[in-house]
């Protein structure tokens, strides 16, 4: 098997998440194949001539074999992807990397902390937990973004909040003129005081800017959450996804294959990270 050879995936639907993000629902062109993906893993998504980049799956595995990516426009490839519509083809390689520990955290209270587009990889985890809601304890989601407009998936918040024993707390850094907000302002760790979760039986899952994950993890360690039950999802530059190009290395780890989901304790003492 040639791991560099992409598969064609047809866009079967798109959904804009203003201001700068777009979701793509895809299925492989070859009906006989499907991606055996797990929530937390990623694909290398590419467009010939524009290159490839890593994007996590933004929805859990689907019975019909379709999958979803939600992509924010930041550079050459991702900006070009904003113009891709249903019917067009993308080239994908994957799934790669480690998944969220859905099995290991069964029976535990879950604290999910997301920053900005860090909610994209966490959404499939939450949706899977909601599918088997009774197998998990209390679920508390803390979600922070720069502005109210950047609270991605806000149209789903009501559904999430209606799940039994599930709580969602939001915060924004800043409210630009023209937007309204009557919720909390300030960094996401400012929501710790209202989270209502005890460390003994809790697991933490976090994704966002690395500096945010630093404050989240360190803040929770001080509150006696154990380092082996804090899971982080990291971002690094990635070219291959297969442990060959070297770009994603963090100390002895290859983030593409040993991660992107790590236990916080696995990463202690490495240089070149803000964690």
């Amino acid at each position: 098997m040639n791991l560099q050879l992409p598969k064609e995936a047809v866009v079967i639907g798109t959904k804009a998440h203003p201001p700068d993000t777009k979701a793509f629902k895809l299925r492989l062109r070859n009906d006989n194949e499907r991606l055996e993906l797990r929530s937390g893993q990623f694909n290398m998504v590419g467009l010939p001539g524009f290159g490839e980049a890593p994007f996590t799956f933004s929805s859990p595995p689907q019975a019909d074999g379709s999958f979803e990516h939600t992509i924010r426009a930041v550079g050459r490839l991702s900006k070009r992807l904003m113009r891709v519509e249903a019917g067009e083809t993308l080239h994908v390689r994957g799934p790669f990397g480690t998944a969220w520990p859905l099995e290991q955290v069964k029976g535990r209270d879950l604290l999910v902390v997301a920053g900005g587009v860090g909610m994209i990889p966490l959404r499939p985890f939450l949706l899977e937990v909601f599918q088997k809601r009774e197998e998990y304890g209390k679920v508390v989601v803390l979600f922070g973004a720069r502005t109210p407009g950047e609270l991605i998936y806000r149209e789903e918040f009501d559904t999430w909040r209606r799940q039994p024993n599930t709580f969602l707390h939001l915060t924004v850094d800043d409210v630009p003129p023209g937007e309204t907000w009557d919720g909390h302002t300030g960094v996401v760790t400012g929501l710790f005081s209202q989270m209502g979760i005890e460390p003994d039986n809790a697991a933490v899952l976090t994704c966002g800017p690395e500096i945010m994950m630093r404050f989240v993890a360190r803040g929770l360690l001080l509150r006696r959450f154990p380092a082996n039950r804090i899971y982080v999802s990291l971002e690094r530059r990635m070219k291959c996804g297969t442990g060959h190009c070297g770009h994603c290395q963090l100390g002895p780890k290859f983030v593409c294959k040993d991660g992107p989901v790590f236990r916080y304790e696995e990463l202690a003492g490495f240089p070149d990270t803000l964690l």
Partner: peptide, 22 residues
């Protein structure tokens, strides 16, 4: 370690994905 580049032919009929040492 390597990087991946796209080499686009002038008439766009062929695009090559190449790896170069990085």
């Amino acid at each position: 370690c390597y990087d991946i580049w796209e080499r686009v032919g002038l008439d766009l009929s062929v695009i090559e994905r190449i790896r170069v040492w990085d």
